[in-house]
Amino acid sequence: MTAPDFITALCLLAGAFFFLGGTLGILRFPDLLSRLHAVTKADNLGLGLIVLGLMFQAPSVAAAMKLALIWGLALLAGSTSCYLIGRHTLARQRTPTRRLRD
């Protein structure tokens, strides 16, 4: 096993570990905000580690940079959607009567 392959395997395993942790968090945590916390860890660190691992296998520097860009896009989109969900949840907790209207 060459050195890049070894680093790839290490990064992929570490990434899978974070995804596993995030999934456990979604299943086990009691409320929406802490579940969001778990899922962002999985998305940011897990995907980051997997992308890092794959970058060592990329055929060219350009392909490796593209992988990094994908991670950046996922980070940006993930944090935005998480923030939207969190904000919506907080707003809903402040107006608890709303859901009982019907």
Binding site: L73, S79, T80, Y83
Partner: peptide
């Protein structure tokens, strides 16, 4: 109005259009 969401939107939307 939400300063953080505003900032995120202004950052993300051009990137999405590019993508």
């Amino acid at each position: 109005p939400d300063a953080l969401l505003d900032w995120l939107t202004r950052l993300l939307v051009p990137v999405l259009v590019l993508a």
